[in-house]
Simulated scan of single mutants.
Amino acid sequence: MAHTYHELKEMTVAQLREIAKDMTHEAVKGATQMNKDHLLKGLCTALNIEMHEHHEVVGIDKAAIKIKIRTLRKKRDEILATKERKELSGVLRQIHALKRTIRRATV
Rank of each mutant, 00 (worst) to 15 (best):
M1F: 13
M1D: 12
A2Q: 15
H3F: 15
Y5R: 07
H6P: 14
H6L: 15
M11S: 01
M11P: 01
T12W: 03
T12M: 04
V13F: 04
L16K: 00
L16N: 00
E18S: 06
K21G: 08
D22L: 09
M23I: 14
M23V: 13
E26F: 12
K29N: 10
K29W: 09
G30Y: 06
G30A: 06
A31R: 02
A31Q: 02
T32R: 10
T32S: 13
M34S: 00
D37Q: 12
H38Y: 09
L39A: 00
L40D: 00
G42F: 02
L43T: 01
L43Y: 03
L43I: 05
C44M: 03
C44K: 01
T45P: 08
T45Y: 09
A46T: 04
A46W: 01
N48R: 12
I49D: 03
E50G: 08
H52R: 14
H52Q: 15
E53L: 11
E53P: 07
H54R: 07
E56A: 10
G59P: 08
A64I: 07
K68E: 14
K68V: 08
I69M: 07
R70D: 15
R73P: 10
K75L: 09
R76D: 00
E78A: 14
I79P: 04
L80S: 06
A81L: 06
A81W: 02
A81R: 04
T82K: 13
T82D: 14
K83P: 11
K86S: 07
K86V: 08
E87Q: 11
L88A: 02
L88C: 04
V91Y: 03
L92K: 09
Q94Y: 07
H96D: 15
A97L: 13
L98N: 06
K99V: 12
K99E: 15
R100G: 14
R100T: 15
I102T: 05
I102K: 02
I102S: 03
I102N: 03
A105G: 07
V107Y: 05
